[in-house]
């Protein structure tokens, strides 16, 4: 039982790190639908680095690559005012091609000796993820910087008038969001999977993206969502540890996380929640800031 829980906490870690980054950049008004692509890039960079230099450099390189493509998204969507969905999709399509070219030749498990440390079978990265969430929650809700970030996401024009640098804030949040997505990817390939196979994220990035939407942009709700979906995802992969002889075939189980996402989206879109949702949604989300 415990190994199963440890594994699902690791999936929750991946979701949490990626989603908290996305939450941060959405709070500043930038949607990044390329999060799956950023995770792929981070995963490939991390995996290749880990094979030669070990885990810590892998995480750092994963973050750098993620941040770099976060920066590209920031340049496209903030400075060049390209539609954020188009820019994110472009980055995702690029990532699928680039990662196939770059990392598929290293397909297979990590070399012996590159083993991630585990405390009672759980990677310490879980606790780092919790710390990241608390830090981002603290910054967003308790600090002056957080107020600035939220004001840029709500009403960039008012924010600019009151002296907040809109463009700079959005760059900052998008790059940090990209770094966290890259880190999540590196953790996925080096620790959770410990091996490279063709395009390993398998939709996790999209789940993380959806988690942000139904967290009402609040880090603590996001934490609950990530834990729940980590469990569902891991259950779909190894159900027999919980329920021996489960009658459902594998493909049906693998659909579960995606079906669950739609169900949650439908529930929170109901009239009762919709008002609350509309209130907590960053007002300028997805809108480029165009100074006239």
């Amino acid at each position: 039982m415990w190994p199963f829980i440890a594994r699902s906490l690791e999936v929750a870690t991946i979701l949490l790190i990626a989603a908290i980054g996305e939450l941060l950049n959405q709070r500043s008004g930038v949607i990044n639908v390329g999060i799956e692509g950023l995770m792929l890039l981070g995963a490939a960079a991390g995996f290749i680095t880990a094979s030669t230099w070990g885990l810590i450099p892998a995480f750092i390189i994963g973050m750098i690559i993620g941040g770099l493509f976060g920066l590209i998204h920031a340049i496209l969507s903030t400075s060049l005012k390209v539609n954020q969905v188009v820019s994110g999709m472009g980055i995702w399509l690029f990532a699928m091609g680039f990662v196939t070219y770059w990392a598929d030749r290293y397909s297979g498990p990590l070399p012996r000796g590159v083993v991630s440390p585990r405390i009672y079978e759980l990677s310490p990265m879980f606790f780092i993820a919790l710390i990241i969430v608390v830090v981002i929650w603290f910054v967003l809700s308790k600090t002056h910087l957080g107020l600035k970030i939220k004001s840029v996401g709500e009403n960039p024009f008012a924010a600019e008038v009151s002296g907040v640098k809109v463009i700079r804030t959005r760059y900052l949040c998008t790059v940090i969001g990209g770094m966290l997505a890259g880190l999540a990817g590196a953790f996925l390939s080096t620790t959770y999977l410990g091996a490279w196979s063709h395009l390993p994220t398998k939709g996790l990035g999209w789940i993380a993206f959806a988690l942000v939407m139904f967290s009402l942009w609040r880090p603590m709700i996001l934490l609950g969502g990530a834990l729940t979906f980590g469990f569902i995802w891991q259950f779909a992969i190894s159900p027999e540890t919980i329920y021996a002889g489960i009658p459902a075939p594998l493909p049906i189980l693998r659909m579960l996380p995606f079906i669950a996402t739609i169900v949650v989206l439908v529930i929170i879109s109901r009239e009762k929640f919709r008002k609350k949702w509309a209130l907590s949604k960053p007002e300028a989300l997805g809108e480029p800031y165009i100074k006239e």
């Binding site: 699928m96 196939t100 070219y101 598929d104």
Partner: peptide, 9 residues
């Protein structure tokens, strides 16, 4: 392998 998909990307 993969250079072709990189081109598309």
């Amino acid at each position: 392998f993969g250079l072709d998909v990189l081109f598309l990307g």
